[in-house]
Design a binder for these strands. Structure first.
Lengths: 328, 328
DNA sequence: CCCATACCTGGGAGCGCTACCACCACAAGC
DNA sequence: GCTTGTGGTGGTAGCGCTCCCAGGTATGGG
């Protein structure tokens, strides 16, 4: 009488059915050692017959490393819920991981407690990709496990990092606004603590200074709701604006909606442009002028890097290209 | 000389530092047994001092159950990448899981190989929430583990299921179109194999029949791109159409963009309505009339159910309410 | 013919943790 | 006084898997 009649088939069952030892079965299943063709074949067919699935927990325990990568998204609740860019990143991570045959975990990390070391304590995760973090948080990662971490959205010297050239992309958008005659250009920023939100602001400041134009900055939070509020502030403070650059498409789409609600014509009265080229940017009316952000490529590079599957230079910056639509 | 000088602190280290046995330390840390106040205090402070983190792999191994829930998204690549509804579901799962102090895994499951049993073989996962699946796939789940599975988007009798009343919501939208004088109403459907995509279609057929109106169905795939294509088909086949109901907002927004591109005025010439009430529906011009889909509630109920934290009736249907905006 | 060099195999230990059980002290009851 | 508890404790046995190593059987050379 067995104590637990309904248990998962384990390696020992397979070995017994195949008439070999656990060791041999293990070698065949994990493909990590010699085994005769006959043994190989018998183990495989026994495993198939019994519907054997290796227990990942046990494997992780003995290997000291797991079969999952964690995508850690740092930010506020609203931003995680509402930014389409985050969505693309998450979806890209899921698809990339599936193609590498590993799992993905998603972890929301509140902005004020970026405990990255905690994520790595779990030996069932092989690597962590951090979205939107700070250099300080990355430095909290123990040096021994830095090879298992990659960051997206910050050019870090601490861990391999992958990012779009959002300074360059922002500059391209702003030059376009200037080239089409806009001179009273406002910008909606993102969370100030985020490096990837600082570079476009710097690009904006630099270009305004170079052109001898006044700076009109309003803070946002990467969300459409934030963009709406920012547009209200802009119209109140600088009713003369003839262009608004949103730090991301979500913000820009919020601005677009708010301007429309306020009776401004886009692009006739005010031009609007964003960044990221999310799908919604192509669906709005007018279509949103923006700059590309190859998230899928970025995420898949980062996942490949933490898995150690692909060699990567310590810092990779992907180019961003202007996408002209009707809004600017 | 230790063989691995840099290893994670384990329970034994904590026990030694606290001057108690592993057993006592384990009881204190996991809070699953008696321990004297002094022992409790000494173990806790030792753990804090040494930065102890329980190894989840080992815990899963011995407990036979893990600390994560998996959100399995069934669908095509395009749908996973582009449907904002999926994004909301994923984000909701991440936030809910964080609040229960468990992890979330994300698993993309190709439509043609819904191997749900495989997901459950991993004992590091405590439960699985399946998004958009079929009754057949759910029946492939072994009865012994059905308590660890919940489904979203299908009223299943096999496992606990959580869904919005999309039949009722669709009917509300369609009645609104009818009430505002529309009579030549077309509908863009979703993937036909999906139960949650069948109910709105049934609602549409029923209402059209009851009103003695002709049925105009075009198939889509839950994406904006699919909605665009469908709108093209509709205009070619039934140029007289005066309303289009998209099975979800993504499709409806695609329709909206395509109609605009074709020179039709919305809502003057053609009314457009969707379903889900995603954020983008409030940002489009005109705002998209739609019906609510409380994904966050649905997902958090489903996660609670697979964790066994909340008791739930076998099938829960959340109400859907009409949201009137300018498009219809 | 015997020994060397492969290749293959199975036993055993152990990854870090918790469940179980036996044990000890001490208190309360007859 | 002895028994019957009771709360606290530590040893031990695994969970399922992979590694290491000793031992085995075929094949080659001397």
């Amino acid at each position: 009488m067995r104590r637990r009649p309904e248990r998962q088939t384990r390696l020992e069952d397979v070995a017994k059915a195949a008439g070999v030892s656990r060791s041999t079965a293990s070698r065949v299943i994990s493909g990590s050692g010699p085994a005769s063709p006959t043994a190989r074949e018998r183990v495989h067919s026994a495993a198939r017959l019994l519907g054997y699935r290796p227990d990942q927990a046990a494997r992780s325990l003995v290997n000291g490393s797991g079969f999952r990568v964690t995508l850690a998204v740092v930010g506020t609740t609203a931003q995680v819920l509402d930014d389409p860019y985050v969505h693309r990143a998450v979806a890209a991570a899921a698809l990339t991981a599936t193609s590498y045959d590993v799992g993905v975990s998603l972890q929301w990390v509140p902005r004020d407690a970026p405990r990255l070391d905690r994520l790595l304590a779990d030996r069932t995760v092989r690597g962590v990709v951090v979205l939107n973090t700070t250099e300080a948080a990355l430095r909290s990662v123990p040096p021994t496990v830095r090879g298992r971490v990659a960051s997206v959205g910050i050019g870090s010297r601490t861990v391999p990092s992958f990012d779009v050239d959002n300074g360059g992309g922002a500059a391209a958008v702003l030059r376009h606004l200037y080239a089409t005659g806009r001179r009273r250009i406002a910008m909606v920023t993102g969370p100030a603590w985020l490096p990837c939100a600082q570079r476009p602001v710097k690009a904006y400041r630099d270009l305004m200074r170079a052109a001898g134009l006044p700076v009109r900055l309003v803070s946002g939070d990467f969300t459409a709701a934030g963009g709406r509020r920012a547009a209200g502030t802009i119209l109140a403070r600088w009713p003369e604006v003839d262009a608004v650059f949103g730090i991301n498409d979500a913000a820009a789409l919020g601005v677009l909606a708010a301007l429309r609600a306020a009776g401004r014509q886009v692009p006739e009265d005010v031009a609007v442009a964003g960044f990221d080229d999310v799908e919604a940017a192509g669906l709005s009316d007018p279509g949103l002028t923006t700059a590309t952000n190859p998230v899928e490529q970025i995420i898949s590079s980062a996942v490949g890097a933490v898995l150690g599957e692909t060699w990567v230079p310590p810092t990779t910056v992907f180019p961003s290209a202007l996408v002209r639509r009707a809004s600017a």
